[in-house]
Design a protein around this nucleic acid. Structure first.
Length: 417
RNA sequence: GUGGCUAUGGUGAAGCGGUUAACACUAACGACUGUGACUCGUUCAUGCGUGGGUUCGAAUCCCACUAGCCACCCCA
């Protein structure tokens, strides 16, 4: 048996409806905020991700599906979407028409990691980006839209956490202050944090080890070291969130894995997904567009893990319910049933029948199994009279109807959800 | 890359060295005599992840592989 590749999953009927539900909600909600979809390629030049995500991040160092194609180009299957969206924004000079772009995307991303709950090698993200606005109202807007999306799905559990990472003016000084703090406690930190002290000291703030949490309990916070501009930006973001009623919590220990983030960063976290607590995450990236060779235009955005959202919706079913099942007895009735079914399908109804002429009992069982709203029973007698029996499967009631598509359609429209 | 746990049919599983490999669900067909749900009956693993070994005898014990899951690192 040929099996799929580790970490690459099939999304089967039964669960794909959940995905469609999530995607439809995203399109609906994002549309309210003026976002347009952008479709970007799965393969990009490897250089794009090295420049944007950061050469020394784990994603670039060990998790990318990179290879050399037949034209000897170094290419990579995208590990995230923001870099590609910004590349397209710059390449097509979208900023020339209007520097403010509100874009969303959805599709597969690829990272070579060991799979676990809520984490796969091919996974899917829905992301949104806004370029060209520095004003904190847009920070609040993006966060509010994200929360709106989850509310639309009926999910209240993931909570919003926000933080500010400062900018190139204030972060270096904070980084040194934090290193100074950690230096005096190095012997109390775990091996991972000793390594982080060199590579990315901010990471020590969200270490899972109880010892490290204790040792860094009163570490200096970035929020206390923001420059006046960043401080004002963060305060205004908070004020706008409060005014529109988007609940949030400040998490001074939240750090981001990608190098391009500045100022506002955020995560939507849940306790229901094991080790994968982040359902969606993002932040401001005011330097990214310039780093990629574009103009000095700011940006902010987020990405959510569709698998993780689907896991939160796990218990709900979004199965489609047929409007009608046509049961027929005998050759002539079967042919008539097929014709009728086709007519009703063209009228927009979901209609099913048994294709192989089984017993009436067997057909009724199938109608029940498919959870059809109505069943139409066509036998030899009915065919001659030009009528059939229409049965309401929920109520159990039934009556004669004329064998005409329009007549049956009018019955089906009653109480149609 | 590192660690832990688990592998019996389409699914959930019982089995603990000698059984026709339970039971339940699903599915197919049938009974209740052109109509589903409830009830009942029949059918569905020559095989227990793969390969070795121990034994008169292995799904059951041992070893090695492989796969899956969860966790670490990291991350949506």
């Amino acid at each position: 048996m040929i099996t799929g590749i580790k970490g690459f999953n099939d999304i089967l009927p039964g669960e794909v409806e959940t995905w469609q539900h999530i995607e439809a909600a995203a399109r609906r909600v994002f549309g309210c905020y003026g976002f347009s979809e952008i479709r970007i390629p799965i393969l990009e030049k490897t250089e794009l991700f090295c420049r944007s995500i950061g050469d020394t991040t784990d994603i670039v160092e060990k998790e990318m599906y990179s290879f050399v194609d037949k034209g000897e180009n170094a290419v990579t299957m995208r590990p995230e979407g923001t870099a590609s969206v910004m590349r397209a924004y710059i390449e097509h000079k979208l900023y020339a028409q209007d520097p403010v772009a509100k874009l969303y995307y959805l599709g597969p991303m690829f990272r070579y990691e060991r799979p676990q709950k809520g984490r796969y090698r091919q996974f899917h993200q829905i992301g949104a980006e806004v370029t060209g606005v520095t004003d904190p109202k847009v920070d609040a807007q993006v966060l509010t839209m994200l929360c709106h999306f989850f509310a639309e799905l009926g999910l209240t559990e993931p909570t919003l956490q926000i933080n500010s990472l400062g900018c190139p003016d204030c972060r270096p000084a904070y980084r040194e202050a934090l290193k100074g703090f950690l230096r005096e406690r190095l012997d109390r930190l775990c091996d991972d944090c000793k390594r982080r002290y060199e590579t990315n000291p901010l990471r020590a703030l969200d270490c899972k080890s109880a010892h490290c949490k204790e040792a860094t309990a009163d570490a200096p916070a970035m929020l206390d070291h923001l420059c006046p501009a960043c401080n004002g930006h963060f305060a205004a973001t908070r004020r706008h969130l409060e005014r529109v009623g988007t609940p949030y919590a400040i998490n001074t220990r939240m750090v981001r894995g990608l190098d391009y983030y500045t100022r506002t960063t955020f995560e939507l976290v849940t306790g229901l997904l094991g080790a994968q607590s982040a359902v969606a995450a993002g932040g401001r990236y005011d330097g990214l567009i310039a780093d990629l060779g574009g103009p000095g235009i700011p940006g902010i955005g987020f990405a959510m893990g569709v698998e993780r959202v689907a896991l939160l919706l796990k218990e709900q079913t979004f199965a489609r319910r047929p409007d009608l099942f046509v049961a027929a007895l005998g050759e002539g009735a079967q042919d008539e049933a097929f014709l009728l079914m086709s007519s009703l399908q063209r009228l927009g109804f979901t209609v099913e029948m048994d294709y192989e002429g089984k017993s009436l009992k067997s057909q009724m069982r199938r109608a029940d199994k498919l959870n059809a709203r109505f069943t139409l029973i066509i036998g030899g007698d009915e065919l001659l009279r030009g009528s059939a029996v229409l049965k309401n499967m929920d109520a159990g009631s039934q009556g004669d109807v004329a064998l005409k598509p329009e007549t049956i359609a009018s019955h089906l429209r009653i109480d149609k959800p």
